[in-house]
Simulated assay, not measured.
Amino acid sequence: MTVPDLEPRPPTIGNEDRGRFAHLYGVLTAQEMADHLKCSPEAVYERAVAGEFIFLSSPARVDDRRYPAFQLNERLDNSLLRQTIQKYLEADVNSTLLWSFLRSPQKIYAGLTPIEMLLGGMPPEYDTLTPEERSDVFLDVVDEEISRVRW
């Protein structure tokens, strides 16, 4: 009887453990979001409608809005998130599709998700880019995604 190789395999982008980022991909209720922001759930909703936050809702549960937790992270590039939200609003693309995009690893980002990029993650090949160039690259990918989901 042979013993299987018990050496752990080196991680690859396709199978790495993203558990360490699990808190970034969770969602909060309107009340939880309001508690973190020290305001009312109504004020959170108004800010979301203004394009400051993403919220997810279900037609079956209109009063059960959920807010992705990464939006409370202190490292978040709020300006870039607002620009991304605005592009989705202008294209009349559902926020659920935006949420899906933000959680999906992107080849152009060396396997990072857009959320990780919004929080300051950067592939080595982006080291030489200015913050403006980095934002432009990010928004180009957003435009491509919007174009893909609209057709």
Rank of each mutant, 00 (worst) to 15 (best):
Y67E: 03
T29M: 04
L56E: 02
P10F: 06
S58T: 13
H23F: 15
Q71R: 04
V44T: 07
C39I: 15
L24F: 09
P68C: 04
P68Y: 00
G51D: 05
D64Y: 13
R9S: 15
L72N: 08
A69Q: 05
R65P: 00
K87S: 10
E52T: 11
T84R: 01
L6M: 15
K87A: 13
A69R: 03
G19I: 05
L76P: 04
F53V: 02
P41L: 07
V44C: 07
A69E: 06
N15H: 12
S58R: 12
S40G: 03
F21S: 13
G14H: 10
E32P: 06
D64S: 10
V62T: 12
P59H: 09
D63V: 07
L80Y: 02
Y45L: 13
D63E: 12
E74K: 11
N78H: 09
V27Y: 00
A48R: 01
V44E: 01
G19T: 13
E7I: 11
I85W: 04
Y25N: 07
H36R: 15
H23I: 10
A34N: 03
S57T: 14
N78I: 03
D63I: 06
D35L: 15
L72E: 07
R66F: 03
E74Y: 08
L6V: 12
N15D: 14
A60W: 11
F21C: 11
N15S: 10
A50Q: 09
T29E: 03
A30R: 02
P10N: 02
S40R: 04
N73L: 07
P59Y: 05
L37P: 00
D64A: 14
R75A: 08
V27N: 08
G19A: 12
R18H: 07
F21R: 10
L76N: 08
E52S: 12
E46V: 11
L28P: 04
A48I: 06
Y67A: 02
V49C: 02
Q86M: 10
S58W: 10
R20Y: 08
Q86W: 12
R66G: 00
L72P: 03
L56Q: 04
S57Q: 12
S58Q: 12
M33N: 01
R61Q: 14
S40F: 02
P68F: 00
G19R: 09
S57W: 09
A43K: 11
L6R: 15
F55N: 01
P4K: 08
E7F: 10
V27Q: 11
R82P: 03
E7P: 00
Q71I: 03
E74T: 13
L37D: 03
V44W: 01
T29I: 05
C39K: 13
C39D: 11
R82V: 08
R75T: 09
